[in-house]
Design a protein around this nucleic acid. Structure first.
Lengths: 209, 209, 209, 209
DNA sequence: TATGAATGAGCATTCATTCAT
DNA sequence: CATGAATGAATGCTCATTCAT
């Protein structure tokens, strides 16, 4: 391993360290009330250092989204590529994958939502924006592949698979969203787990031939 | 109509005017990048005037949520109370209602999400917080009533109706969410309409006995 | 006087108040070490208020230059228009005018110099930049008119009058500059007055036929 | 040449390298907007290295001034010592010398001006401050010697020679200054060369008996 | 010597909120 | 009621400087 390589890896580690700290602070204070100083303290770094690794606060936030999308993408790719699984088993695996992703980073949607604002997009490097778009599309596409497989095997109804993927994506987003806003909407504990369970049951039944 | 009443009504109108302006500004700039001055300009009022009608920025935002929840509640109540509709027709009516709500105010979710932050909740009057919670629960409860009716009539599977309501709520939230973040996630136009259509089809099929 | 007019005048007064404070602070601390808070304190205003009247720190500084150029311009116009003065008397009047300007704002050159940097220019509104350019050119042009008059009357040598104006402008700038940097260069008190006196004597002799 | 000497020379080279880079960066961005990192990049060194050769940013800037003053001093001494030149020829030689200096480092005045700020002076080593003062005074003194020679030989008017020197110094400074701020003030290309030419013509005529 | 990552004090700027008119 | 100028605390960000390697 060359020096250059080692440094690159070191840099990646720092970014992770900062993102983890940011995640923690965002989840406690919310994106707006969290200050860069808060994050720096949490990461046990100085405020200036944050700017060595992230162009600005918005970019730090967007990078969190990218990170979770990367994780999601890997999970989905893996499920999709499992040749030995029957379509219905893949749906089950999907459910597990999504639950996994949520556990990895429950903040996913707050961050994703933040990206909507055109004012925020202005602050992001075009590289980052295109990475996020690419990964989002890839994720949905991979899910679509899973459904397509089931349709081919005559197990699932013949809806456009991409549409199915989008519905599942929406369902997932919505469930997470409602879980996030527990204070207002949800009532029972383990809301997420139960609801994902129930939702997939309905969904799986709904798409079966 | 007494003078007092007229004044009250006048006051309500002003609040509406401000909320509409706020909605427009929020949808363009996002909640955080929108300034009270932006909103005042959009409403053709002065910044100071906003504070005659709303305690602070967070409360203005929360009032937007309350407003949409009220609208949603009315729609749902109406669907639920229609004695002549069969369960499946009610589901169809639900779909229409939700589409309606979305058209009325697509920003609902951004606002709802914003309410999550405990830091924001601190700024709200307890009256407002309890109103929002009550309405949210009512909405879900009313949907649950619809499902319960279907279960009693032996048309829907015997899932806990409240769970069904939550799934539908999540589905709706997720769809709207994905539509909002079109720039990042969605690909096709009319994403929302198509996806609601597809989703309800799957959902309806999934809960039928 | 209408309300609008009164407000406009009030606004002008505030700008003056701030500029005067800025001048004082700049002359004590230098442009860079002077903070906006320093200036606000000196003006007995809050930092935020400064930004109601000046886009940013660079623009506040440039406005000081504009102010002195306006003053200079008026002085020069007056000298140039005096029909009864002989060319040599006008040169004498020029000297007085310049001395006057310097007394009005000895900081003129520090500010002018600041304008050189392209990075600074980026921060200025194009209106301001064009105003400054126009006034600078006008000043030199007016001086040229004075020399042209002398050349026509066969009193001054037939150099291009514009070139003469530029030399005088440079002489003035240089004298002020050296006076400013007293700490390093000048030795005697009243350096400025003496040197302007001497310089104009040489200059007047040099351009006489 | 001993090792110590070689090292000393090497050190001098590095200082030159850094000063040249600094000059380039200052002339593009202005002293304040130029960062030490900018200079380090231009010099193809790391920021830390700059501090091995200069105590701080202000001292780096002052060293630039010192460097140009040394160059000027040598030029002036040479002109002054030429026994065979007539006073008028010396004035001509002075003109050439000044043009030379300007070409060597047009930034001289920006740097000199920067030294004015008492806040900056605090940051400089007393050694450096006294060097700069000494050289400045020497330069003016040497010019005065040239004029004194002319006065003795009954060629120049009997003004105090030191005053003449100061006027010339001011003229030079002013011309350079105006050339630097071309964007704002000057109009014609080759402003500097032409104006120095014209100015010396007037000046020479003005001091002749 | 040279590096360049890390620092953290410092500052320009913003903006929710107030209040005299 | 309405205004909008003024506020000033809050904060994102910068950059001269340091120091472990």
């Amino acid at each position: 391993m060359g020096i250059r390589e080692r440094k690159e890896r070191e840099k990646g580690r720092r970014r992770q360290q900062i993102m983890i700290a940011a995640k923690r602070v965002f989840s406690i204070k919310g994106f707006n009330k969290a200050t860069m100083e808060d994050i720096a303290n949490e990461a046990e770094l100085s405020p200036g250092t944050l700017y060595l690794y992230f162009k600005n606060k918005d970019e730090l936030c967007a990078s969190l989204s990218l990170r979770i999308l990367q994780y999601l993408n890997i999970k989905l790719k893996y499920v999709s590529s499992e040749k030995d699984l029957e379509p219905e088993q893949k749906i089950e695996a999907l459910k597990e994958a999504m639950y996994d992703v949520y556990e990895f980073d429950p903040l996913i949607l707050i961050n994703m939502l933040h990206l909507q604002s055109s004012e925020v997009l202005k602050n992001l490097s075009s590289q980052l924006v295109s990475d996020i778009k690419k990964l989002s599309n890839n994720s949905i596409k991979t899910m679509a592949d899973i459904f397509e497989d089931g349709i081919k095997k005559n197990v699932f109804i013949d809806k456009k698979p991409f549409a199915l993927a989008e519905i599942l994506w929406a369902l997932f987003s919505g469930i997470v969203l409602c879980d996030e806003s527990k204070g207002i909407i949800a009532n029972n504990k383990n809301y997420l787990k139960l609801t994902i369970e129930n939702a997939f049951e309905i969904f799986a039944k709904g798409i079966k031939k």
